[in-house]
Amino acid sequence: MSIIITDSGFFSNYQDAKVSPNHPGPSVDLKSDFDPKDITQELLQARCIRIELPSFADGRAFTLAILLRSHGYTGHLRAVGYILADQYTMVRRSGFDDVEISEELAIRQPKKQWQDRADWRRHDYQGRLREQTL
């Protein structure tokens, strides 16, 4: 059993994103060593893409999420695996919609620690620098 974590908290029986017209493709799981050259039109049709972090110290998934969004992917993007509450802000800012961790990992990281970082748009140096005006 795994826990889905969003801005509004913990969900254990979260219904995955419903099939929507412009995302007819099946759900796809990617590993962190996925090569961006393999981003195809077919992949961009996926209903949901789940990228696995083998370790919280392996930051490749953040670049992969940014690249998928930059190639126009608008489906559901989920970070899965060994993720710590302290990473929730960078996960959301990289373009992920939510996080999926094991129940066991969730026990050591209660909801409050994730909620403390749910306001992930604040203190965003990079977002600020990309605006039209300051």
């Binding site: 620098l129 990309r130 605006e131 039209q132 005006t133 300051l134």
Partner: peptide, 17 residues
Amino acid sequence: ARLKTLFKGADQQLLQQ
């Protein structure tokens, strides 16, 4: 080439400040 389009000027304004 992709990233360049995302920077619309605020960074240069900040540099002047």
